[in-house]
Computed example of a mutant assay.
Amino acid sequence: MNNIYKFDLLSNIISLINSEEYDASITNLANDCNIPLPYMRKVMLSLIKNQTTQYCLYTSDELFISADNDDDDFDLEQSFIEKYTDDPKRYAELILNGTYDDMTWEFNLRVLDNICDVILPLTHLEYGAITALGESILSIKRGALLEKKETVNPISLEVQKNCDTILTAKSNGYAVSFSYQKSNGEIEQVTCHPVELTTNISDNWIYMSSAEGKSYRLDRFKQIHRIIKTTSPPEYTENPKKKYAWGSYFNDELEPIHVKIRIAAETKNIIRKVKNDLKYRSRTGKLIQDGEYYFFEDDIIGLPEFQRWLRGYGSSIIVLEPQELRDEIVQNAKIILDLYNKSKSWSI
């Protein structure tokens, strides 16, 4: 198999896995890419082994936390990638013998680190622009897979897992016990009651605030040991406006702004990701399905962070309110459209 065909095949497979509307199981990928099932298993194993793709590859079926309400503590279940890292030989054999042929795989490109190679699919417009600059076909194909790119600090799978654990504890009024690395490098053992998770817009760090009055950065959690059922959590008085804060932005001198967005119901992967993002907004927001669309309404303080969140979904989300934000998005779209019109002379 020549190199150009290999890069074409990998580009197609990565595009399908990254698609919001495609059920990217090994079986489906083999059928739609017209390659033998055993070979597709080897390709998937290569993606799992690769340090770049492994970092953003996950399964849609993963349950990071298994909870038994009858026990004092909760057990934490590993993701598939974590299990593979712990025992690569065993899970490689399971992939190759077809055990995971029907498991659905997905990419989360937002978790890539700024020092890693970032997967960069090229549009026809970008392809034509690079061709006009004299790049060879092979270098373009390689560029469609890997390119150095500056990104914000990554949200790792471990941090995502810890978020779910903390939310479980918070919703039940329980404490969490964990090992935490302080800024000076020392490791301390902490037990506290989580009351809030926030994201800093400038650096993308996620913070946990506790009822005990301290704040902890989730990427510094070395390990969450357990969730502890407590009968008398400490009292915590919250600013009544704080519930409207979107992300980490909060100014109690501002009034909440009403926002409303629309998402197409048939984009199941997008709906699942939106629901996961919006589980923090259960106190003030509401996501409902009406026919072929989902609608989300909320009152927020922190419109800049809300806009940043919207940009992560591109055209999958339509802003209905407020009108000022809708007008700004339309104006930006017109600027981009003008750039597209100027590119008609580029070769494809």
Rank of each mutant, 00 (worst) to 15 (best):
N3K: 11
N3E: 13
I4H: 08
I4D: 10
I13P: 02
L16R: 12
N18K: 13
E20G: 03
A24H: 00
S25M: 04
A30P: 01
L37F: 03
P38A: 08
M44Y: 01
M44F: 04
Y58D: 06
T59W: 03
S60R: 13
D61I: 10
D61Y: 02
D73M: 10
S79P: 09
F80D: 05
D101G: 04
M103R: 02
T104R: 05
W105Q: 05
V118F: 09
L122P: 14
L125C: 07
Y127G: 02
A129R: 11
T131D: 06
G134S: 02
S156A: 01
Q160R: 15
N162A: 09
D164S: 12
A169D: 15
G173F: 08
A175M: 11
Y180S: 09
N184T: 10
G185H: 04
I187Q: 09
Q189I: 08
I201E: 10
D203I: 03
I206N: 00
M208Y: 13
E212H: 01
R217H: 03
L218K: 10
F221D: 05
K222W: 03
Q223G: 04
T231S: 14
Y236A: 04
T237Y: 14
A245T: 03
S248H: 06
E253H: 11
E253M: 11
P256V: 08
H258P: 12
K260D: 09
E266C: 13
T267E: 13
R272A: 10
K273H: 06
K275Q: 08
L278F: 15
K279M: 09
K279F: 02
Y280H: 11
T284C: 08
E292M: 12
D299W: 13
G302V: 09
L303C: 03
E305M: 11
L310E: 05
G314H: 07
E321N: 07
E324L: 08
I335Y: 06
I335T: 14
